[in-house]
Amino acid sequence: MTVGRDTLIDLWTRMVRIRRFEDRVATVAANNEADGFLHTYSGQEAVACGVLPPLRDEDWFTSTYRNHGHAIARNIPLDGLAGEVYGKANGVCRGKGGSMHVADQDYGMIGGMGIVAGGLPIATGVAYGYKYLGKDNVSAAFFGDGAVHQGAWHESLDFAALFECPVIFVCENNLYAESTYIEYHLNAESISAMAAPYGIPAVQVDGMDVLAVRDAMEEAIDRGRSGGGPSLIEAMTYRYGGQYEGDNQLYKPAKEEAWWREQDPLLRFRATVEGIIDSAELDAIDEQAAADVAAAFDIAIAAPWPDVSELTTDVYAPIA
């Protein structure tokens, strides 16, 4: 294994922090403790944690409405994230964005986009900017399998390929576009195959294996930084929750979910590191993650609401 022990511990820490955070979000939703649409990331942890840690802090990325995992994988503080879920003043967007629009550019996270495929052109433009400015940064754009039908998706791949932009398109293929199964909505043999006509190197990886995702990402990053242009990664994964919390999920066969839960990214990781990291140590990190999440929600719940005067601030940037 080329990944060192410290890195493994770090990846595990990020993954369990996501899982415990989303466990809490599911409870919050079930108890109607917060308003709005909540889209949880449980099941997909290996994608965020394979993709984001190999990037530099200055490598920016776009996210989707299913973005809590991306924020946590980038080490955005949990209290600010929990605050945003409630719309509190301590939220990372001071409550104005909400769960669907989590952002903190100080951590490279441009933000969660509520419009499917809305982030791809923007991440492409970020990469275009890096190249123009002579920086060796790369950008990334997360999207789901449902996004490939949007014009914005195709136009982004086209632009990125033509102008050799160092952007990494990351598909979180969880088999469902909202309630619609992929075999119904996709006629192409795979999403990675759809990159070929644009001349973009693409790979399909096991999205439940954080190290497999990481390998693919490192290759894509090397390509981008060395002037090789865009890449596409299709990570095969599964969401345990609904499209949003409260979704009846009548479209998911029980056997299918059971099969994917056997591939759970946390279970898979434990198996991978057996003999390298003691399971008690992994348990302790998991317990610490649960405690950190509880503390973060305590802070968010106690935090004040934003002042009503904030309604009209930040519409326009001031002229310097």
Binding site: E178, S179, T180, Y181, Y184, N248, L250, Y251, K252, P253
Partner: peptide
């Protein structure tokens, strides 16, 4: 439209034509 019935591609688990959403 998107999900105006819901569960498309999963008629195997909803064989009686019931929609999900």
């Amino acid at each position: 439209g998107e999900d105006i019935a819901g569960g498309a591609g999963r008629d195997d688990i909803n064989p009686d034509g019931t929609d999900c959403w």
